[in-house]
Amino acid sequence: MPETVNIIKGCIAGNRRDQELLYRRHAPRLYAVCLQYSDNDEEARDILQDGFIKIFENLINFKNEGSFEGWMRRIIVNTALEKYRSRHNLYRVDDIDLIPEPDADPDNEDYSGLEAIDLLNIIRELPPKYRMVFNLYAIEGYAHKEISRMMKISEGTSKSNLSRARLILQKKVSLYTGMNKKVVNG
């Protein structure tokens, strides 16, 4: 199997086989990231396509410093962010008051029944603004200051969106695990 370095060289040279090989090798992982940031499958596919085009265009700038997978993931996340920015005026942020407090204590919850795909579905149910902040903070590890700059919001808004996202997620996780228990018991 060709080494990643050789594939990258081939991609830079415009070799279609290497480009396709790179795509086949990394697309499943990156598509999951796209789904994590998108409302629907079509939007996720758009992000993946645009992201891979940027990856191929910018491969020549990849300096072999750090993880190649991480570098690709950052491009995909930035593409998702651009997509979000272009649409964010269309989104309405749910009012936090309408979201009830979670009944369960997350520390005592048993999450063992939750599959990765369940977590993905839960995260995709979040309102876009909350989902974006939660993804950037909790999954990608950005600080609120960075998120505020990336999303063009204040740090306070970022923090509040994160807090609201967590509340919703806790509630939904509890519902999921509760439903699973019922199914198992029932």
Partner: peptide, 19 residues
């Protein structure tokens, strides 16, 4: 709060879905 973050971070870490 960190717990719920960790749950999603670890849970989604190796997720792969065919495009």
């Amino acid at each position: 709060k960190a717990n719920i973050d960790l749950l999603f971070r670890k849970g989604l870490d190796d997720l792969e879905i065919l495009p």
